[in-house]
Design a protein around this nucleic acid. Structure first.
Lengths: 285, 285
DNA sequence: GCACATTTGTAATTTTATTACAATAAACTT
DNA sequence: AAGTTTATTGTAATAAAATTACAAATGTGC
């Protein structure tokens, strides 16, 4: 356990003077690691040996060792845990929490995702005659993003966030076409229909969705991303970031499969943007 | 920069004896933080002052301070470094690399982002009569996502990924309106125009873009995210994830500012989706 | 209110780090 | 290549910091 947490947890075991020391340390931990035992003792208005005893009570070898542990706690604190945003949080607090819980979500997704399925999805995508990305609501922007990526590969790509268009597109799909359905919950009725229609027309359907959901059952291949979502906010946040990263992975797999010759192509696409941009001073031509 | 990396990087600037010290430290960093200067000097077979000079060369105040920095580096363990995808990478490799570099990007963004500006942006957004999100290319999907979030707040929100629509919308903006322009590079000419037009019409312009870019100069408020992008892939990946997280943060700040009463509203929006979804077995009604 | 235990502080000691300076080694000049 | 300069390293003295031993003070139970 982290020293800082340890201090908080064992406050009850401390004596009066030790508590004074704890308070000073918790109030300015960053200062503490750069202070001598004498300075800290003075700040807490106790004697030096009291500080030393305080350190020992926390199972450290002494004051310098304690500072080491404290420094480590401060370096990363609780690395990437899913901390929920609370009513009273100020900007620093909620910013940190959202970054951290997003990272925690990615970390979790990384361990849960099935590499094998990813590989098969890449297989299917590289051989596709046409690729369609469908999503609704929050997942629509993920579908758009996917389109923006795969479009660069010079493959026919479509993306619809309109049920009617999706439906028409699905009905027109044929063998060799790949339909990617994106939905965090996997319970959106309309999207399940789309998946079902596409399959009936012999398209391969990849679901970026929850394993064991109605949508998953309609798909040929399911890419599941078990992400713990903070439902307090009533908005999909971390889950959608994980979906995007998954798209990045599929796109990367795609380019790698196609080989280096193909990557020249990507460079061309990127270079084509130059005309629409202001040049960087240090990057003429 | 992390002390360990610093040692590796500045190895060329070291003298012979200092290099001996560096080797010993790199070989057993964990031991180092629990050693005295005398012990370390002996291990490296140099004198104590040499060790001290070594520490100073690394911009630390002395040996104890150096140990503190080293402890922090070790705590971090630099778990999420930006590892580049390579030609020969298999699915496990590139999947892991993309997850990790995305997380590294978020970690970096977290430390670079200016909380103060975030707070001011939230201020401005909560007071907006109308909010517009504009992005082009890869940033368009970020804009869509933002729309999807802010739309739930029952505030007038628009989002265009079409230059003509953006232009018309910008020209019609007025005091009290907030325009959010999203662009990783900040060099997209058309978007700079939009920002400029919006400002001329007294709208507040928030730029989610690179600090010190043409777009940034047109904005009232700049939210910069200094993310190291893997340009080998010729696609914006990590940077766009960071932008999304930033949107999440702004949306969260918005809801917190509005208070708990307002959050009831969000729940209603979410509940409204129920009809379009298959119910969960364990969640009837 | 006294004996005992716990907590806290003072002062001495020890450990640890730093400084000042001298010796050595390397580089450069003529 | 010898002499001069500069950089590097080490020795010994000094200073700083932390720890220990012990004594005073405070609190607790009977």
């Amino acid at each position: 356990m982290n020293v800082l947490e340890k201090i908080v947890n064992s406050v009850t075991n401390f004596s009066k003077s030790e508590r004074k020391v704890a308070e000073v340390i918790l109030a300015n931990p960053q200062t503490t690691i750069h202070s001598s035992i004498a300075a800290l003792a003075k700040m807490a208005d106790v004697s030096e040996p009291t500080v030393n005893r305080f350190c020992r009570r926390l199972d450290t070898k002494g004051f310098p060792d304690f500072k080491l542990h404290l420094a480590q706690s401060l370096a990363n604190g609780t690395p990437y845990v899913n901390r929920h945003v609370e009513e009273e949080d100020g900007p620093e607090a909620y910013t940190a929490k959202i970054f951290e819980s997003t990272m925690a979500a990615l970390d979790s997704a990384r361990h849960n995702v099935d590499i094998n399925t990813i590989n098969r999805a890449v297989d299917v995508l590289t051989q596709a005659k046409k690729i369609s990305f469908f999503g609704l609501g929050a997942s629509a922007s993920v579908a758009h993003d996917a389109q923006n990526k795969f479009f660069r590969f010079n493959v026919p790509v479509v993306c619809f966030d309109d049920i009617v268009m999706q439906r028409m597109s699905a009905i027109n799909s044929a063998e060799g076409d790949v339909v990617v359905c994106i939905s965090h919950t996997g319970r959106t009725k309309n999207l399940c229909d789309i998946a079902s229609i596409a399959r009936e027309n012999d398209a391969t359907v990849i679901g970026v969705t929850a394993y064991d959901s109605p949508l998953a059952r309609e798909c040929t291949l399911v890419l599941s991303l078990d992400v713990p979502e903070d439902t307090d906010m009533y908005m999909p946040m971390a889950s959608r970031v994980a979906q995007l990263v998954l798209i990045d992975i599929l796109a990367t797999g795609f380019t790698l499969r196609r080989g280096s010759k193909f990557r020249e192509n990507l460079k061309k696409v990127k270079d084509s943007l130059r005309g629409s941009r202001f040049e960087k001073k240090d990057n003429p031509a």
